[in-house]
């Protein structure tokens, strides 16, 4: 089942947000078909409000689709078994400010059912990997945005997931850290991990991803690898999404 459907399979998925009186307000995603195979690094691209985060939340089982079907490892996404096989890095770090870096990792290790010893080992390894061993005992509420991002990335890896979902993984990182994250994604992919990521930085996506899907206004407007889409991801993106909204900035400034 998993082989034929892929790690992630979306068939005709749509999401309509409704107000208190259940009147439809926004069509966030419409008729989305998507499949991510095992070991693939897949990028979900699109401008703000294109439906990327909503799609990710439906894949994570945090939001139910209004129509269509989402499958994760061949199961419903709210299945605990399916969720035990994934790691997730949200767009912002969303850490508990009163926990230390070490406690944060230990907490998520516990939720991933790791025993105490393994959790401690992995916490130490991941703190070393993200270069935060020296501040492991400090509350993350006092961390800079970049440090918090690195802890959040470590949290997403604590359960040794088969699928890693990264929402804007390089957001808030300096160039060195960005390069480290890209290199990490490549290393994890080489180890057989499936990765789904979103990014506004097309260059970053182009450096690490095998395939891409471009969303605009909740619809998929393009999908494929660089060969099928064209040589420059930026050209494809601009042609499908548009170069601007036709606002005369120069005229406004006069």
């Amino acid at each position: 089942m998993e082989q034929s459907e892929g790690v992630i399979a979306l068939k005709g998925v749509s999401k309509v947000f409704r107000d208190f009186w259940l009147r439809p307000t926004v069509k966030a995603v419409e008729g989305l078909d998507l499949s991510v195979a095992k070991g693939e690094v897949f990028a979900l691209l699109g401008p703000n409000g294109s439906g990327k985060s909503t799609t990710i939340k439906m894949i994570l089982g945090l939001m139910a689709p209004s129509g269509g079907e989402v499958r994760l490892f061949g199961r419903k996404p709210d299945s605990a078994v399916a969720r035990s096989r994934l790691g997730y890095l949200p767009e912002l770090s969303y850490l508990h400010p009163y926990l230390t870096a070490r406690e944060t990792l230990m907490y998520y290790a516990g939720l991933c059912n790791l025993d105490r010893r393994t959790a401690k080992e992995r916490t130490a390894q991941l703190l070393a990997m993200v270069g935060l061993e020296s501040v492991a005992g400090r509350p993350v509420g006092g961390f800079s945005k970049g440090m918090a991002r690195r802890i959040a990335l470590a949290c997403s890896l604590i359960g040794k997931p088969e699928l890693l979902i990264l929402d804007e993984p390089t957001s808030g990182l300096d160039p060195v850290s960005t390069s480290e994250v890209k290199s990490l994604v490549k290393t994890l992919s080489a180890g057989g991990m499936t990765i789904l990521m979103t990014s506004h930085l097309l260059g970053d996506a182009q450096d690490v991803c095998d395939r891409y899907a471009i969303l605009n206004f909740g619809r998929k407007v393009a999908e494929g690898d660089l060969k099928t889409l064209g040589t420059s991801l930026q050209d494809v993106f601009l042609s499908k999404v548009g170069v601007g909204r036709g606002f005369d900035v120069a005229g406004f400034l006069k």
Partner: peptide, 13 residues
């Protein structure tokens, strides 16, 4: 504050 999604995305009821 959207912090809850990190917990709910884990295998926890």
């Amino acid at each position: 504050e959207k912090r809850l999604q990190l917990t709910l995305a884990r295998p926890v009821r």
